[in-house]
Simulated scan of single mutants.
Amino acid sequence: MLINLGLFDDHDIVRAGFRYILSQHSDIEIKAEGKTGREALAAVRSQDLHVAVIDLSMPDLSGMDVLKQAKAIKPELSILILSAYSEDQYGLNVLKAGASGFLSKELAAEQLVSAVRTVAAGRRYISPRLSEMLALGLTQDIEQPPHLRLSEREFQIFSKLVVGRSVTEIADDLCLSSKTVSTYRSRLLEKMGFRTNADLTQYAVKNNLIT
C-alpha cells in the first residue's frame, strides 16, 4: 500500500529533514506540505491523504485546533501530532483529542517511519513512555498533573489562555460564544486549583508546556 502523507510544520528545516527521511521509503509519498494550520486543513480537504503529520505549534491555528477540524472533515484520516515538547507534557492530551499518535522532534528516523506505517494501518502509535503513562493512569498508581485532568475542550482553551489569548479571541478561534469560553475557563481553573490566567501561565512555564 502506498501511503499518501501530508507534512505540516512552520519550520522549513524540520520539514526538509522529515521529507528526506521519508523519501528513502518507496511505500511513503509526500502529497502535501505546508507551514500553517490553514494550509494543513486545505490539504486535508483537497488531497487524498492517509496520514498527516502536524506540528503542535503553528503561527495561525494550534495543532490541537487543526486536529479537531481535520477529523471533522475526514474522520478516517490518521494524524500524528509533532512537538518539540515531550510526551509528559502533551502526549496523553493529544491522544484524548483523537490523534493517532504523538511524535517528539527528537525521535530517531526509524521511529518516524514506524509511526507513519503504524497509523496508516489503522493502529495508534504509542511510544514506550506514553504506554507507561497510560498504564499508570489506568491503574491510578500516580497522581496526575493538573493539566492531564482536563477534558479535551478544557485543555484546548487552557492552551490558548496560557499564551495570552483573550476569552473573545478564543471564542472566535473555536466558533463558541464568549460566555461558553468563560464557563470553560472557570471550570478548568477550579479543576487545576488556580484563580487567574497568570497562575495558568506560570504553571505552563514551570511544567515546560510553553517556553
Rank of each mutant, 00 (worst) to 15 (best):
I3P: 03
I3N: 09
N4L: 05
L7H: 01
D9G: 04
H11Y: 03
D12E: 11
L22S: 15
L22E: 15
S26Y: 11
K31D: 05
E33Y: 14
T36P: 00
G37I: 07
A40E: 09
A40N: 01
L41M: 11
L41N: 13
L41K: 11
V51Q: 03
A52Q: 06
M58H: 01
S62W: 12
S62E: 06
G63Y: 01
L67G: 04
K68M: 01
A70G: 04
A72Y: 03
K74A: 12
L82E: 07
S83H: 09
A84T: 05
V94W: 10
K96V: 02
A97D: 13
A97T: 14
G98S: 01
S100C: 10
G101N: 05
F102H: 08
L103K: 00
S114W: 03
A120P: 04
G122Y: 15
Y125N: 11
P128F: 08
P128S: 08
L130E: 14
E132N: 00
M133A: 12
L134R: 04
L136K: 01
L136M: 08
L138Y: 08
L138S: 04
Q140G: 04
D141S: 06
Q144T: 07
E154I: 10
F158S: 14
F158I: 04
L161I: 14
L161T: 12
S166V: 00
S166M: 02
T168K: 12
D172H: 05
S178E: 02
T183C: 15
Y184N: 01
Y184A: 05
R185M: 13
R185P: 12
R185F: 09
R187P: 01
L188H: 00
L189C: 11
L189E: 04
M192R: 13
M192E: 11
N208P: 14
T211C: 07
T211W: 14
